[in-house]
Nucleic acid binder design. Structure first.
Length: 476
RNA sequence: GGUCCGGUGGCCGAGUGGUCAGGCACGGGUCUGCAAAACCCGCCACGGCGGUUCAAUUCCGCCCCGGACCUCCA
């Protein structure tokens, strides 16, 4: 039974019912990184958001193909190579590898296909030839340009008219363009710049054609969802759509467009000149908890809203993870409850409302804690519209299943709580020995000694929690 | 200047035409040798001004404030 899914479609600027072209096989394309530098915080947001979307779709549909490209041809890469002396191939290989590692660290599953622009050149050339043949593109001075007036619907995706675009143009219009809005499909390369032979001479692709060619190669001319950062809506996605719809008239191209909001740092746009440019590596270096905490931070804000990254926010997200794992650590094994799962999952089906699902997850957490520690789970259960008291472990098992769709709280709870001991610091065995010594002191009513041991461990960052089942430890 | 998106309690952050978001912080309890954790209770917000309505934070208009984008490449 597939629940109704609704997503905000950028093209119509409204929430739309999601109806896959083929219910047996859902297809989604997300714009991936241009690999010229380490991924920054802003790059990670779409990856996390669309990872959740894919996990959600996989829960309901038998097959989902998720494509995310790697753009490894770009003048930013060329510039970087020229400045640093490192070869283009080395830069893109190294950066791609780092990207993979960083995305894994925030819990993002790899896409099903990850096409590279450099491996799709033939497809791009064929694509451009098709546009020329159809009267949608023209060659001029070694360039090939897309003829925007040939596509009457141009601007519909981003909600702009050609007049708007001309009025706002802040870049000089190249003299060989027929219309100011025309954009480059192919451009000539000089001897020092990477280039490929083409019918228009040695050159390289423009910015947008690679995504049209790669989505076509992987998913065909029609697919369900196209995702990316909101900054890509115009011109990148507008141009992609124009190219694809003109090359394949009658196709729908992407049926739905989803865009995530931008990420800011301390209330400011992230930029190198402001000195607030944060790579994901900067965050991951803070500890083994940082990847999941960052993911939690991202999910705490709705994907379309602007997200302001702050250290305080990251600390709070980490505390949320701590509380989740603390609950999971004390909950007994049990089966999950279908109604609880559906209740907590429902907000995700309504335009991926991760903050509300997280709130419901907290209710499940509180219910579990109340059940296992002798409190009253009434309030949380009533929010679910129920008046029963679940068996211990049931809310926790349900929590875990919903959290899996968000890609959080899937680690071993004890590893989370005890992970990341400093090298050369206390060994777990030494901590256990200290706990045993303290227990002996307590039995002998030597509370001064017991407290001394507690304080000693606290200095090492180890916190003891005395519970009904004995004493457990965790890192502060 | 144009297009679009937002302004919710000390902070973060959902949502709704009329009964509750939630979290953090804070205050008070329970439990506890101590501590921590957990649980329970409290904390009654919706940028401004008009309008529609029996009723608006929620709909409409205007204003103020913030943000995104306004085209490859020299």
């Amino acid at each position: 039974m597939i629940p109704e899914l609704f997503f905000h479609d950028s093209a119509t600027r409204q929430k739309q019912r999601f109806v896959p072209i083929d219910p047996q096989h859902v297809s989604i394309y997300v714009c991936g990184p241009t690999v010229y530098d380490l991924a920054h915080l802003g790059n990670a947001r779409p990856v996390i958001v669309f990872d959740v979307l894919v996990r959600l779709l996989r829960r309901f549909y038998p097959r989902v193909t998720y494509v995310r490209n790697i753009t490894d041809i770009d003048d930013k890469i060329n510039d970087r190579a020229r400045e640093s002396g490192e070869s283009i191939g080395a830069i893109t290989a190294r950066t791609t590898e780092a990207f993979h590692a960083d995305m894994a660290a925030v819990g993002a599953l790899p896409p099903d296909a990850e096409p590279r622009a450099t491996q799709t050149i033939a497809g791009m050339i064929a694509f451009i030839e098709r546009l020329i043949a159809g009267g949608h593109a023209y060659a001029a001075e070694g360039h090939v340009l897309f003829d925007t007036p040939s596509f009457p619907d141009y601007g519909a995706l981003s909600g702009r008219t050609p007049e708007d675009l001309i009025a706002g143009a802040r870049v000089e219009v190249a003299p060989f363009k027929r219309n100011p809005g025309d954009f480059v499909l192919w451009k000539p390369s000089d001897a020092e710049t990477p280039g490929w032979d083409s019918p228009w001479g040695r050159g390289r692709p423009g910015w947008h054609i690679e995504c049209s060619a790669m989505s076509l190669a992987q998913l065909g001319p029609d697919f369900d969802i196209h995702g990316g950062g909101h900054d890509l809506l115009f011109p990148h996605h507008e141009n992609e759509r124009a190219q694809s719809l003109c090359a394949y008239p009658g196709s729908g191209f992407a049926r739905m467009w989803l865009h995530n909001g931008m990420l800011r740092v301390n209330g400011e746009k992230m930029s190198k000149s402001l000195g607030n440019f944060l790579t994901l590596r900067d965050i991951l270096a803070r500890g083994p908890w940082a990847g999941e905490a960052f993911r939690m931070l991202v999910l705490k804000t709705h994907y379309r809203a602007a997200l302001d990254f702050t250290d305080a926010g990251l600390a709070e997200a980490r505390a949320d993870c701590d509380d989740d794992y603390a609950m999971l650590a004390r909950a007994p094994q049990a089966g999950s409850d279908r109604a609880m799962i559906d209740w907590a999952l429902a907000p995700l089906c309504d335009d991926l409302n991760t903050p509300l699902t997280l709130a419901r997850l907290r209710d499940l957490r509180t219910v579990e804690n109340a059940v296992t520690t002798g409190g009253s789970p009434t309030v949380g259960m009533e929010r679910m519209g129920r008046h029963d008291v679940p068996e211990p472990g049931v809310a926790a098992a349900s929590f875990r299943e919903v959290a899996a769709v968000l890609g959080i709280a899937q680690s071993d709870p004890t590893s989370w709580r005890q992970g990341g001991l400093e090298q050369g610091g206390l060994a777990p065995a030494a901590i256990e020995a200290a706990i045993a010594a303290r227990l002996a002191a307590r039995k002998a009513k030597d509370f001064a000694e017991a407290d001394r041991i507690r304080a000693e461990l606290a200095e090492q960052g180890v916190v003891l929690e005395d519970g009904a089942g004995g004493t457990v430890w965790r890192l502060a």
